[in-house]
Design a protein around this nucleic acid. Structure first.
Length: 421
RNA sequence: GUGAGCGUAGCUCAGCUGGUGGUAGCACCGGGUUGUGGCCUCGGAGGUCGUGGGUUCAAGUCCCAUCGCUCACCCCA
């Protein structure tokens, strides 16, 4: 039996990891521009936290969680619940009336893997807690848009409002009544959804169901005055920031805690997975978890999905990690002084590499090329005797003599500036 | 949980109606270049054809089972 990774759990190999670093770095940069501060929360929580926040009847909770039943702890399927728990537990609202937080890390859902979907996957997650102004909704959405733009990813933005505890239940009743009139024309899934998750029928991909959804009562017509005002101010604020969007009154989110504004950044380049990022407002969540009655809004972006999009955009060309200086040691005599010089260079912040195998110069040059060395320092027996080495610039192919006079420390002191230039 | 497709070298794949596993490409190692990379050229190494069973004179190829992967449904980032 061959040892291999668990289904849905993927290695991120070095070449790809460079792209991951780039994405995460860009995300941190942009989040910080928006005043977001990083928070790191555990990847496991008591199962109850997820049940209470995400919702008992959601697919995520019902069938996708990795739960250790003995103590009933669960590997997080998303980050928002954990962050809210940390927020409440540490009384963070006392420190600052508005908390802007982000986290980056792995999430776990026991679904069947497919393109753009892993069982361990990674999210960039941003939350703004304690502010209910519509401008904040727009600001958060703008932040997500800015990140995707700067990464060079084309997405379309769709927004919707799901209402609040005052206006959603009446709408739901209205919708169920409508759907029950059209049961015969709905697909089997949607017949089931009529009772389990009627809003989801509106988002069904089947054309027959779409036709029914088209004339279904719209949540946007059923919003209470407060929600309606909020939604129009969000739209206005997005326009003020120059963010283009379309309204999708059929958009539904899979987690129960969402209220009012919801949004998705969509792509058509990921097969069945359209959402690169998505989020929304969750005004009742913190209180429901036993914290203060504070509003919140957040989004999550799937890093794997971003990586896929970026990889297929610059198809073929991958990022490379460079080496400042490769030291080619010829003969066993050269190994010791070369290893010392390599170390001296590293002490001075230089990315240096060498090979102890005593292979031919040709082989070592090949290795230097493979690690993208900018310079190669060739140290052979002749050079050692004469206290000199050959420094080759791999790009210009020009070579110069480098003196090995003095201690290794002095050598490093002289060589480092040349390599940095 | 459901459905479909696919498992041949580290990777990407040829392999027809069963008849000896491919000078295959990329990557790797070595030579051509007696101490100089990329390009070129020559050579080398690398395989229980996912696994188990069956049919057959003969199975990578056909049949069954099993494991794995992929895509899609459901749902979601």
């Amino acid at each position: 039996m061959k040892i291999q990774a668990i289904n849905g759990f993927k290695d991120i190999l070095p070449d790809s990891a460079l792209l991951w670093q780039q994405i995460e770095q860009r995300a941190r940069d942009i989040f910080q521009r928006f005043g977001m501060r990083e928070i790191r929360v555990p990847i496991m929580e008591k199962t109850d936290l997820f049940v209470r926040s995400i919702g008992e009847a959601t697919d995520v909770v019902e069938k996708e969680m990795y739960t250790f039943t003995e103590k009933s702890i669960t590997m997080r399927p998303e980050a928002t619940a954990s962050i809210m728990r940390a927020f409440i537990e540490n009384g963070m609202h006392v420190q600052q009336p508005v908390q802007r937080l982000f986290t980056i890390g792995p999430m776990f859902r026991h679904e069947r893997p497919q393109k753009g979907r892993q069982r361990q996957f990674h999210q960039l997650d941003a939350e703004i807690i304690g502010a209910q102004e519509p401008q904040v909704d727009a600001e958060l959405i703008a932040m997500g848009q800015m990140l995707l733009d700067e990464l060079g990813i084309n997405t379309s933005l769709e927004i919707n409002s799901l209402g609040c505890p005052a206006c959603r239940p009446p709408f739901r009743t209205k919708l169920v009544n409508y759907l029950e009139l059209h049961q015969d024309a709905l697909c089997d899934d949607c017949k089931r959804r009529t009772t389990t998750n009627p809003l989801r029928v509106l988002d069904c991909k089947k054309s027959t169901c779409k036709a029914i959804a088209k004339d279904a009562p719209s949540i946007l017509d059923s919003l209470c005055e407060n929600c309606s005002d909020h939604f129009s101010l969000v739209r206005q604020a997005l326009q003020d920031l120059g963010i283009s969007f379309t309204i999708n009154r059929f958009m539904v989110r899979g987690l129960d805690y969402y209220t009012q504004t919801t949004f998705e950044f969509l792509t058509s380049d990921l097969g069945a997975q359209a959402a690169v990022g998505a989020g929304g407002r969750y005004d009742g969540l913190i209180e429901q978890l036993g914290g203060p009655a504070l509003p919140g809004i957040g989004f999550a972006m799937g890093i794997e999905r971003i990586v896929l999009l970026m990889e297929q955009k610059n198809n073929g060309t991958s990022l490379t990690q460079n080496t400042d200086c490769f030291i080619a040691a010829l003969g066993q005599e050269a190994n010791k002084p070369c290893s010392q010089l390599t170390h001296q260079l590293r002490l001075r912040g230089i990315n240096a590499a060498m090979d102890y195998s005593g292979r031919s110069l040709k082989a070592q040059m090949k290795q230097a090329n493979r690690v993208h060395a900018r310079f190669v320092l060739i140290v052979g027996e002749n050079e050692l005797k004469q206290e000199e080495a050959v420094l080759r610039d791999m790009k210009t192919q020009k070579q110069q003599v480098f003196s090995l006079a003095g201690s290794v420390s002095e050598q490093g002191e002289r060589l480092a500036p040349v390599l940095r230039a």
